[in-house]
Simulated assay, not measured.
Amino acid sequence: MHKTRTTFVHWRPNMLRDAMTKLKTWKDKAQRKPLILRGARQTGKTWLLKEFGRLEFDSLAYVDLLASSRAREVFDGDFDIPRIVSALSVESGTRIEAGKTLIVLDEIQEAPRALTALKYFCQDAPCYHVATAGSYLDIAKHEGTSFPVGKVNMLSLEPMSFLEFLDAIGEGAAAEALRKEGAAGIDPALSGKMEQLLREYLFVGGMPEAVGSFVAERDYSAVREVHSEILDAYDLDFSKHAPVRILERMRLVWEGLPAQLAKESRKFVYGAVRPGGRARDFEEAIRWLADYGAVHRVSRASALRAPLTAYRDERAFKLFCVDVGLLGALAHLQPSVLLGRARRG
């Protein structure tokens, strides 16, 4: 019989995200602009903005531009801010007050004119706190979208760090010790426990839903099932947003990440993706994966001198998966490989 698994999309106990501090700083900036919170799918952008609104404002006007065609149509007219604010107030069911209400426009990549409207919020109505979230904003730049350059503040949200993971699973004391002392300052008697916690993080990763599954069930199979669902969602996104001409090459690069990182080579090897492969065959596919947020491209430095960017060699680079848990799922890594005898669940 198939085991029914609870989905933890809305699970967030002790979700102490470091980005919350940055959001609070943005709120109080004298020269504040509309905010774009970007990041890969499933990194917790929606929850973070809702929680920010709940904690720091009198009210929250939340609008999902993917779910509501009516909300998208609000931006089909002119860019008159009073008209837009009034319409968003009706759509969200919240009376919007400048300085007291956080306006959240979720999935903003689905409404290019909403992205353009941020320019007019910045120029004509800076009194409003407007925060947006989206997963494919860098990709939108490739498609002729009028991006409000210089009129927005940008913030990126990555998967949960090791310290955030420790806070979430009830190991706040360990997290605090690492924050204060660093790894070198930890009592040697605790090194075994710290190593085991790190091994757990390397398997679970930092995707909030995977962390939620781990906290609730302590079942590594259930965690891996979450990873598989996220990977399936990524693949569907690739099919939806990427040009058909590069889709196969994107998948080859994406699915080949574990093999690339396992090699001793100091740079990405195109021939390992496909025999005879060259840079020109995969450059666009790699750029799309990076813009989507699925991979980080890290270039080699030709010399260890400051600033490192002056010695960056763009021809020699490595690709790293956005999340270590997803990387393990791509590699079909079994829990016993990382956890050994100390495996729980």
Rank of each mutant, 00 (worst) to 15 (best):
residue 137 L to S: 04
residue 97 E to K: 15
residue 128 Y to V: 03
residue 136 Y to R: 04
residue 126 P to K: 07
residue 125 A to L: 12
residue 105 L to Q: 02
residue 115 L to K: 01
residue 95 R to I: 15
residue 139 I to S: 01
residue 93 G to A: 12
residue 77 G to R: 14
residue 125 A to Y: 09
residue 122 C to M: 03
residue 93 G to D: 09
residue 78 D to H: 11
residue 112 P to V: 01
residue 110 E to N: 05
residue 84 I to S: 09
residue 114 A to W: 10
residue 111 A to P: 03
residue 125 A to I: 13
residue 86 S to G: 15
residue 111 A to N: 02
residue 132 T to G: 08
residue 139 I to P: 00
residue 70 R to G: 00
residue 112 P to M: 02
residue 105 L to P: 07
residue 138 D to F: 06
residue 77 G to L: 08
residue 92 S to H: 11
residue 105 L to G: 08
residue 119 K to G: 07
residue 88 L to S: 09
residue 86 S to I: 03
residue 77 G to K: 12
residue 136 Y to K: 00
residue 143 E to Q: 10
residue 119 K to W: 11
residue 88 L to K: 05
residue 106 D to Y: 03
residue 132 T to H: 07
residue 106 D to G: 01
residue 77 G to I: 00
residue 133 A to F: 10
residue 109 Q to E: 09
residue 97 E to N: 15
residue 93 G to M: 11
residue 86 S to C: 10
residue 91 E to D: 02
residue 80 D to C: 10
residue 115 L to W: 00
residue 120 Y to Q: 07
residue 98 A to Y: 04
residue 102 L to W: 14
residue 117 A to D: 05
residue 91 E to L: 10
residue 128 Y to T: 09
residue 76 D to Q: 13
residue 87 A to C: 03
residue 88 L to Q: 10
residue 122 C to N: 14
residue 138 D to E: 14
residue 127 C to P: 00
residue 78 D to C: 03
residue 109 Q to C: 02
residue 89 S to R: 03
residue 117 A to H: 06
residue 90 V to P: 02
residue 116 T to H: 12
